[in-house]
Nucleic acid binder design. Structure first.
Length: 276
DNA sequence: ATCTATGCCTGGTGGC
DNA sequence: TGCCACCAGGCATAGA
């Protein structure tokens, strides 16, 4: 699923081909992706050009002349550039005809992805974007402010790391990898963790995310960056998807459990719960 | 105020 | 082979 490194990769890939292109028309076989009236949406974006593409957390911002198209890929959204409409396939739900004759096409089997349109510069007035915390790979994160939030939470640490309102950018894959590196059990209550442990988690999150960005993201299940390119971080995964494989540190079999309803991988020897 | 459960969706898988 | 129940899960929302 696209998390911060995957969305970053998509952004960089699309930038090389999309900047300067003007939207000539919009075709929406499944318009529910767009969270506003389709005709209004078309009126606003047609004749607008892509001036920049940015990212915050897992959100993509397509900056146009007067508006910003805010796109979230959720579980498996993807963008393709098609040379011709005949190349589009079953699950391409929103298609932008570009001035160079190509088509920017949004593909999403599960239809969970969203597109919202705001006036340029007002991206952070969107409720979904406004509530996001700081990016998990940011330099010099204020550990104390994070610690305060974690310290009063009576929930598993994994659930807090997935909560985008505190730190944003981590999803199921990178949370598992981060907690493995920090040697913290995903079900450990956040309130049981001390400042040193929180610091360790945050440092490892940055290491994992930065390395995944360098490798173009992680391809498991369905993720590909735009134009059908696989990521390479899947070769670096230590625990996620590795059930019953030996832990790369101690050789113990990796376990799969459920935490907050999500499939969770861990080494039961390296990531022991604390005795209190 | 916090936390948990549900709905949104489809394709893949395993059981029979 | 086909049918069915179940699973994958980010986020919004409803409910406890």
């Amino acid at each position: 699923m696209p998390e911060l490194p995957e969305v970053e990769t998509v952004k960089e890939t699309l930038k090389t081909r999309l900047i300067g292109q003007k939207i000539k028309s919009v075709i929406a076989p499944y318009p529910n992706i767009i969270k506003m009236n389709l005709e209004t949406f078309k009126q606003k974006v047609i004749n607008q050009s892509f001036t920049d593409i940015r990212r915050y957390g897992k959100y993509l911002f397509f900056v146009l002349n007067d508006y910003t198209l805010v796109s979230h890929l959720r579980m498996e959204g993807k963008y393709f550039l098609r040379q011709d409409l005949s190349q589009t396939t079953k699950h391409e739900h929103v298609i932008f005809e570009l001035s160079n004759g190509e088509y920017l096409s949004y593909h999403d089997v599960r239809k969970f992805g969203t597109m919202e349109l705001v006036e340029k510069g007002k991206e952070f007035t969107l409720l979904s974007v406004k509530k996001l915390g700081i990016e998990a790979n940011q330099k010099d994160i204020d550990i104390n402010s994070i610690f305060k939030k974690f310290n009063k939470a009576n929930r598993p640490i994994k659930s807090l790391l997935l909560d985008q309102s505190i730190l944003t950018g981590l999803g199921n894959i990178y949370v598992d990898e981060t907690l493995f590196r920090a040697k913290i059990h995903p079900q450990e209550l956040a309130s049981n963790l001390n400042v040193a442990e929180i610091t360790d988690i945050i440092e490892n999150a940055k290491i994992v995310l930065d390395k995944a960005i360098k490798l173009g993201g992680t391809t498991i299940r369905t993720y590909q960056s735009s134009f059908g390119v696989d990521g390479r971080f899947q070769n670096e995964l230590k625990v996620h998807t590795m059930v019953n494989k030996p832990c790369p540190v101690c050789g113990t079999k990796i376990e799969k459990i459920k935490v907050g309803g999500r499939g969770t991988y861990l080494c039961p020897n390296c990531q022991k719960r604390k005795e209190l």
